[in-house]
Design a protein around this nucleic acid. Structure first.
Lengths: 249, 249
DNA sequence: CGGGCTTTTGATGGTCTTCAAATCCCGTGG
DNA sequence: CCACGGGATTTGAAGACCATCAAAAGCCCG
């Protein structure tokens, strides 16, 4: 809970400078943004549906997800968030949050008070625009998930999710050579894809048998990237990844 | 294609005044916003995936949807838009659009150039915030669709969609007494729910047999609202409908 | 009246779910 | 060091739900 101006600043500058050239005063404002560092163990709840948070956070490290509990005791995961993402920035404008937000594995977050973030947006419209844009990209990912869950078979659905996560982790430098840490259980995967855990298990075996992935122990490897993307019909356009700076990092 | 300052203005003032009290200068700015009226027949394409639109539009009347064509020639509808909605406002910040936007039935739209909308946002941050909020609500609807498609049975899935559309149409005064015009075919419903058209047909019959809905000929009636919402586990929270002003209209 | 789209019906089969139990894995405590 | 326990993974078998294929019937509009 100690005050620490470094973490959020760094992650946000990193993120926003991919979207547009930060002016000196914008950089300065970001550096002045107060934030506090929070560490969480796996499966810790950050927000519960119905909460009215008064702060937002940036994921510095680890994996976060948003989910809803369904009427029959099942859970649907709606999205994952990786380093640099702002999972709950919408609470700045919506107030009540309509889903749970949970740390999947051990996480490091930088928490920013709504007031500070709002002041930043008021003073720097281009930063506000960039944050707006971030929420629009998240919306685009939702759309792709609707496609994935609505129309694709279990095998393809899982393959697509693997492609997405690997691509997003690579984009922020958390994956290299198609290898990344991914603290997901097969149960998480079943909740994210709308499949039963048993069927996820069998589909994963099939993907492994085809030599497309290695997955287990919190680690994902994709030895045959072309094969997996072809199977998954994966086109990364919907992620709206900034091309610049990616390789430089 | 004629210039007409009335339509977009009126719809936007209507929409935004639900979210916050418009200051006189904000009202004035909205009234000064140039827009042109466009009428479309059913099934007319507004944007195609990959386009880079230079304008946005407000739905004045009718139904619009966004959709993607899947690899095997099928189509997934990701969302519907009713009067007052801004289906493509994200193009203001994202540039390329990643899905098709199509008129479902006959529509009336008010088109606004990106430049004019951007100028409005620059000059009036509270309007920009309100528009941002609108895109966040759309995101919330996406999340609920992921839940719906991912975890609910065909019958419940359709029931939920009916509840959502009726609620949204009522909120903008386009439904009364649980009756509304809804120019959807069963094929549209199948594309929106990820079900086969045949199964949609059978599920609709079941809903009718239970006395929950009447649907056909472009018209939806829900004689047993409580029964339908109970079946669908429908909780309208995720729509973030403004309570005020609704009844007054 | 005819053509095209939508809706409806029937029959079959595949994908995925559910239930149940065994195995594995890993951290904990005796 | 090993026994224990709980969660995760794996396997098997049965059946539900939904997709697919095919074709008939209904409907609207030219």
């Amino acid at each position: 809970m100690r005050l620490n101006h470094v973490p959020a600043t760094h992650a946000l500058v990193e993120k926003l400078s991919c979207l547009f050239d930060l002016a000196p005063e914008e950089s300065a404002a970001l550096h002045a943004l107060p934030s506090r560092l929070v560490r969480l163990a796996g499966d810790e709840e950050i927000h519960r549906a119905g909460d009215c948070p008064t702060s937002c956070f940036v994921v510095l490290d680890g994996l976060v997800c948003s989910s809803k509990w369904i009427e029959d005791g099942k859970r649907q995961i709606m999205s994952f968030y990786v380093a640099g993402d702002l999972p709950d920035i919408r609470t700045l404008h919506l107030g009540v949050i309509d889903c749970d937000v949970t740390a999947v594995g051990p996480c490091q977050l930088a928490v920013i008070e709504h007031g500070d973030l709002q002041a930043l947006c008021d003073a720097h419209p281009r930063i506000a625009s960039a944050l707006w844009r971030c929420t629009l990209v998240v919306g685009s990912v939702y759309r792709e998930w609707i496609v994935n869950i609505g129309h694709r078979s279990a095998l393809v659905r899982l393959a697509h999710l693997m492609c997405e996560l690997m691509t997003r982790l690579e984009a922020v430098g958390h994956a290299r050579d198609r290898i990344c840490n991914l603290p997901l259980t097969q149960i998480h995967l079943s909740q994210a894809t709308g499949l039963s855990a048993v069927h996820v298990n069998r589909s994963l075996q099939e993907l492994r048998k085809r030599g497309l992935i290695t997955f287990g122990g919190g680690r994902l490897t994709i030895p045959d990237w072309d094969g997996l993307t072809r199977l998954a019909y994966f086109r990364p356009d919907y992620l709206y990844l900034p091309q610049a700076r990616r390789r430089a990092a």
